[in-house]
Design a protein around this nucleic acid. Sequence first.
DNA 1: CACGATTGCTATACTATATAGCAGTTTAGC
DNA 2: GCTAAACTGCTATATAGTATAGCAATCGTG
Lengths: 145, 145
Amino acid sequence: MPRARIKDPLLKLPGYVLRRASAAALAELNQRLARLDLRHADVAMLMLIESSPGITQSQAGHVLAIQRANMVPFVARLEGRGVLQRRQVDRRSQALDLTRRGRMLLVRARRVVAAHEAALLKRVPDRLRPMVLPILMALWNRDRP
Amino acid sequence: MPRARIKDPLLKLPGYVLRRASAAALAELNQRLARLDLRHADVAMLMLIESSPGITQSQAGHVLAIQRANMVPFVARLEGRGVLQRRQVDRRSQALDLTRRGRMLLVRARRVVAAHEAALLKRVPDRLRPMVLPILMALWNRDRP
DNA sequence: CACGATTGCTATACTATATAGCAGTTTAGC
DNA sequence: GCTAAACTGCTATATAGTATAGCAATCGTG
């Protein structure tokens, strides 16, 4: 006989469920991206640079909430991989651009991300689906784009 | 003149916003808990043990998604702090129980968590609020409790 | 022009999470 | 009952993500 089923007393706490949902989704996404040898943050960066070519390193860090210090090895890795290149915009700022290779990789990465996002949304009942993004944005406290 | 405002092209992706919202909420909670010298995982553990006294270490790890290997220093720290105690239930399993000190700390921690959760929900417009938990549970893929 | 703010960087540290393997123990199937 | 499989706690180790402090050079503004 299996021991009495343990109940998770935290399931009523939105903050807790938010964390668990995020962790699960992130792990899933990273697994999907593994075959492109990418992590979720890489794709976020590529998409951001594509959207704002020539964005500076510090601006990118600001948008993605990556600290200056952590941007250094992060960008260096992507540059070393040949998916982005840095360009001196003045004598302290580095502008970032996708390389041809980066753009091609991004095409594939975007497909993976799209599949992931679709899978996520599909778990939500139809009637609730339109509320997903507004609620997440509100929880993020980022209603103003 | 300020450079053209950079737009975050990821704001339409629920998975991305989920991650950002989770990270922001978690940082906020940990800050609130700092004055009790607790982290979010500590409180989760305390609440779980309170809800299921005598739960074994491995069961607790299973519910909270903490791996066996990582449970060891985690539980040791809480035990060293005198908020929980371990009890040998058979010759391999450790049952966990709150100490008196643990129960008293939990009372205060729960107030902090409640304030945090309330603050989270308050950011969501009234009409959407009832959908928060169902949506997060669905995204977690954990509809079945 | 001078001062404060910004940028990229190094070094470092801490948290969270993950894997592999081990010894002892319990459970389940035969 | 005995053996094989599964489980438990543990050590050791590795990686990812995040955080702080401080530095030198540079830029923007008053």
